[in-house]
């Protein structure tokens, strides 16, 4: 059975904190036996959501705060990232590949979230903020039972 856990972070909306949030998520996910590839994908999805809060939600105003929830329940990882910023008026348009309100951005943020996670939900109201909730099924790690065969692999 995958261990259940929950962490909530209130994060000042500055770019440096995107790396910090990724680091917390990496630590949070240690017990769940993910491959480096899976871990990297989750970190990218989280990074995109947090970056959106800072750049789009708060237009890079550093005195704002966004919230990150990390939760594992019933073998499912939930990552929820919310801001109380400008909100999105057309969610379907915002989620289109290569759509960006800013020229220097590639519009890949939501594409990465949708590609790397099993599900992405966006709730947003103009002037009230945006909540992005992402789900990912975690691999089931069966504990060793008595009588199971096992061996120690020597590395290097």
């Amino acid at each position: 059975m995958v261990k259940e856990n929950r962490v909530v972070l209130h994060v000042k909306s500055i770019g440096e904190n995107v790396a910090l949030v990724r680091m917390v998520a990496s630590g949070f996910l240690i017990p769940y036996d993910l491959t480096m590839e899976e871990l990297d994908e989750i970190k990218i999805a989280l990074s995109e959501a947090a970056t959106n809060c800072i750049i789009h939600g708060y237009a890079e105003q550093p005195d704002k705060e966004f919230t990150v929830l990390l939760e594992v329940q019933d073998q499912t990882l939930t990552i929820q990232v919310s801001d109380t910023g400008v909100g999105i008026s057309d969610i379907a348009q915002a989620m289109l590949p290569a759509f960006s309100t800013r020229a220097e951005h590639m519009g890949l943020g939501f594409v990465f979230m949708q590609t790397f996670m099993d599900g992405v939900e966006v709730i947003s109201s103009p002037g009230e903020g945006t909540t992005v909730t992402m789900y990912k099924q975690l691999p089931l790690v069966e504990p060793l039972a008595e009588g199971d065969d096992w061996e120690v692999e020597e590395i290097g």
Partner: peptide
């Protein structure tokens, strides 16, 4: 060790 869409955007720039 890590790149996201902001990093990709920078390379495109």
């Amino acid at each position: 060790r890590f790149i996201d869409s902001s990093g990709l955007g920078m390379l495109i720039g």
